[in-house]
């Protein structure tokens, strides 16, 4: 098995206008795959289709070498899932919720679950409806990890939580992954958080996959250039993708270009054309993500016109 998750031409249409349009994703086994996108991009929809909770209108889903939904129960035995909104029964206590969840999984590690209760500072006799959002989030992670999963599917697991709890949760998850080489498929719009530990990234917007590549390539590939004497002639056959172009104005003395696919030899190319490259700025994952999205949307708008 080389890929923990394979989505091929996944298509789904809601009753309204939202559509997942031929989404194809490959999540390498053992990787920590960040599934990025703005709100409403289709991240949670993709995860629900992946987990077999919804039926796609087209395409194929494979997870841990099993077909979804044909092999779903066996596949889910090896998957730990944390949904966007907690799905626990609020009337239960922590211990009751753990006992209930454990009954469904053959690989449940009771000892490990007990350790996690202590490590995540949860009280077994506390009723879920009286727990804070952070405590509920921790319990969700506990239930996902105690299954000893091969694959963790996390749908915005730290959304709305304070930094301390976010750190506790992600530390626990990463410790587990380091120990077991499990795969993590995590979706979030908190890009700066994912940057710290993801090694693959897939960006989705408006139901379509924009890009999918290792994080380092992503970050390295997008740069902000500050140029003098930039001309449109360069754009006839550019060696890179121009994501954004900001002309010089009172604030900017130079023209700024945001490009994807920048490599060192491109500097000489530009200088041969008479363009002075004043500065090449590395963008972090979040900045690169924003620029990429903006450029994609502009292009889409032009195509629609």
């Amino acid at each position: 098995m080389s890929h923990a998750i394979e989505l091929d031409d996944l298509t789904w249409r809601s009753g309204g206008e939202f559509t997942l349009d031929r989404l194809s994703i490959r999540v390498p086994q053992g990787s920590i795959y960040g599934f990025l996108g703005p709100n409403g991009a289709g991240k949670s929809t993709t995860i629900r289709l992946l987990m077999g909770m919804m039926r796609p209108h087209g395409g194929r889903i494979r997870m841990l070498d099993g077909r979804v939904p044909r092999d779903l129960p066996d596949v889910l035995q090896r998957v730990g899932y944390v949904p966007e909104r907690p799905h626990l029964f609020p009337q239960l206590t922590v211990k009751e919720a753990i006992d209930y969840h454990a009954a469904f999984y053959r690989s449940w590690d009771a000892l490990w679950a007990t350790e996690l209760v202590e490590r995540l500072d949860l009280r077994p006799d506390q009723r879920i409806r009286r727990m804070s959002k952070g405590q509920t989030g921790k319990l969700m992670i506990l239930l996902a990890l105690a299954v000893r999963p091969y694959l963790l599917v996390l749908d915005e697991p730290t959304d709305g939580l304070d930094p301390v709890i976010r750190r506790d949760i992600m530390t626990t998850v990463l410790d587990y992954v380091a120990e077991t080489e499990a795969t993590i498929f995590i979706s979030s719009h908190l890009v700066h958080e994912l940057e710290r530990f993801c090694d693959w990234v897939g960006v989705v917007d408006d139901g379509r996959l924009i890009t999918e590549l290792p994080v380092q390539d992503f970050k390295n590939g997008i740069k902000r250039l500050r140029l003098e004497n930039a001309s449109d002639a360069l754009l006839q056959r550019p060696p890179f993708s121009l994501l954004d172009r900001l002309p010089a104005n009172g604030i900017r003395s130079c023209e700024e270009w945001v490009v994807q696919g920048w490599e060192q030899p491109h500097r000489q190319l530009l200088e041969r054309e008479g363009v002075m490259v004043r500065e090449v700025v590395d963008l972090d994952l979040e900045e690169g993500f924003v620029e990429l999205l903006r450029s994609t949307r502009l292009q889409r708008a032009r195509e629609d016109r």
């Binding site: 077999g52 909770m53 779903l72 129960p73 889910l76 035995q77 799905h87 029964f89």
Partner: peptide
């Protein structure tokens, strides 16, 4: 009734047909 309250998400995510 309890399944309905959280839209059956928990039940659908469990590894049981």
């Amino acid at each position: 009734s309890w399944d309905h309250r959280q839209d059956h998400v928990y039940a659908l995510s469990l590894p049981v047909p």
